[in-house]
Amino acid sequence: MNWAVEQPWVLAGLCLSLLPLFNSGLGNTPQPYLSLLPADNVSVIISGLLRLLAMAAITGLVLGMAGLHRTEQSRERIGHGAHIVLLLDRSSSMDNTFAGQAANGKEEAKSVVAKRLLTEFVAKRNNDLIGVAEYSTAPLFVIPLTENKQAVQAAIAATSTPALSYTHVSKGLGMALSFFQAQPLTGSRIVLLVSDGAAALSSDDEQKLRIWFKEQQVRLYWIFLRSAGSPGIFDQPQDSRDDNAQAMPERYLHQFFSRLETPYQAFEAESPDAVKQAIANINRLENLPLQYLERIPKLDLSAHCYQLATLLILLLLGINFLKVKR
């Protein structure tokens, strides 16, 4: 139990709760010399009780005003889910349709399709921690791994602004992997790469990525949004002279991912439906047991304090009417 108050300075008012110790609150009676009367245990007890009631009432009011609450707690639970980093391609070709044309009224741009389907995907993943990274020529850190779905949705919504420049996938992957560094290793860790192109990796980058993927035990899903007529990730070169990373970066990137020592799966999507299918697949696959912290929100106790105070004041008033007056 962690108790706290909103306004600590109000607690100074607790001094007031000592007042009933100095004044019984019963008033002076016209019969002046009480010492003449024999000591009466019942009276002492009743008078003490009345003082206690008053002290409790004052304490209740002060604690209520100070905003007593139980702080946010977290409880460890086992559920199904994953830690997912969405790595989104913001290269300018994402603003074209699957047919490779500028988006018009009939067909959606790839970025719009990705945005819509990812929004649905995130809404379905209740227990997951989700982070967002983007890349174009340079990687962009957007939202750290978080259970705050609103933040993730706001970041996905922002991808509808015009896309940026080129595709530098290795830096983006490095950024995405860095998200897991401070996270406990539980459940599955996933990088979900959504892109419409690839770039050749330098051997230096390849080596670093291979080590990082292994160290962080990250599984990789690649949703490749293939435009009509562009090379696919499963294409075989027709001419052996084209069989190099510069001519067929998609194929080579896929091969590199396949050689990683962590699980990897690629989805080549040539239409919005195929993207939907791929995301549904991932949604189904990634439900490993996950240790996660369930948040128990802050519990406001000031209402209870006020309730107590109200009750006690009512009681004191009632007792006050019992007094014999002359």
């Binding site: 913001r90 967002v132 983007e134 962009l140 850190f141 957007v142 939202i143 750290p144 978080t146 705050n148 609103q150 933040a151 706001a154 970041a155 919504a157 922002a158 602004t161 015009p162 940026l164």
Partner: peptide, 25 residues
């Protein structure tokens, strides 16, 4: 040109996320 990282988020509920995003710029 400019690009948007995320659309406006409520500062109290999403403080940690906004703070992390700014610190990583």
């Amino acid at each position: 040109r400019s690009t948007l990282l995320f659309e406006p988020l409520e500062v109290c509920h999403s403080f940690a996320e906004i703070d992390a995003a700014i610190s990583h710029i």
